[in-house]
Amino acid sequence: MAMIAEVPSETRERARAEEDARAERTTEETWALVANVSVTGLFALATLAALYLMKEVVVPVILAWVVANILLPVVAWMEKRGLPRSASVLIVALAMVAVVLTIVALLSLPLTYWLGRATELGALIKEKLQSMAQPLEFLKEILGAIGQATGQAGTGLHVEESTNIVGGIVSILTPAVTQGILFIGALIFYMIYQKQIKARSVLILPNRDARLTALKILSDIERNTTVYFGTFTIVNACLGLATTILAYAAGLPNPLLWGVLAAVLNYIPYVGPVIMVAVLFLIGLFTFPSISEALVAPLIYIAMTTVEGHFITPTLMGKRMTMNPFAVFLAIGFWTWMWGPIGAFVAVPILMTTTVTFRHLFPKDAPELPA
Rank of each mutant, 00 (worst) to 15 (best):
E141W: 03
A95D: 00
E79L: 00
V59T: 05
I103K: 05
V99D: 05
L109Y: 12
V89M: 01
T155A: 10
G154R: 07
L111P: 08
L94N: 01
E29K: 14
Q130P: 12
G122M: 03
T163L: 15
H158N: 13
T155K: 05
E141K: 14
H158P: 07
S88F: 00
E29H: 09
V37F: 07
M96H: 10
T150R: 06
L45Q: 05
L53W: 06
K128S: 06
A46P: 00
V99F: 11
L83I: 05
T163K: 14
V34I: 15
L94T: 02
V170R: 13
A50I: 12
N164A: 10
A32N: 13
Q130H: 08
L90Q: 02
A93W: 04
A44V: 09
L115R: 05
W31E: 15
E28W: 13
N164F: 09
E161R: 08
L124K: 15
A149W: 03
I70W: 10
Q130A: 15
L143N: 01
L115T: 08
V37E: 08
Q134I: 07
L136H: 06
A35H: 14
T112P: 05
Q152S: 10
W65Y: 11
T119L: 14
G144W: 09
I103P: 10
W77N: 01
L115W: 07
G154D: 12
A50L: 15
Q152Y: 09
G168P: 01
A32V: 11
Q148V: 03
P84A: 08
A118T: 15
L139D: 10
P73M: 02
V61I: 12
E137C: 06
I91N: 00
L107H: 06
E29A: 12
Y113M: 05
L106H: 09
A153C: 03
K126C: 12
A87H: 04
L106C: 03
I103H: 02
L53F: 14
S162E: 10
S162Q: 07
Q134A: 09
A44S: 06
G168S: 10
L121G: 11
S38E: 12
Q148I: 06
L121W: 06
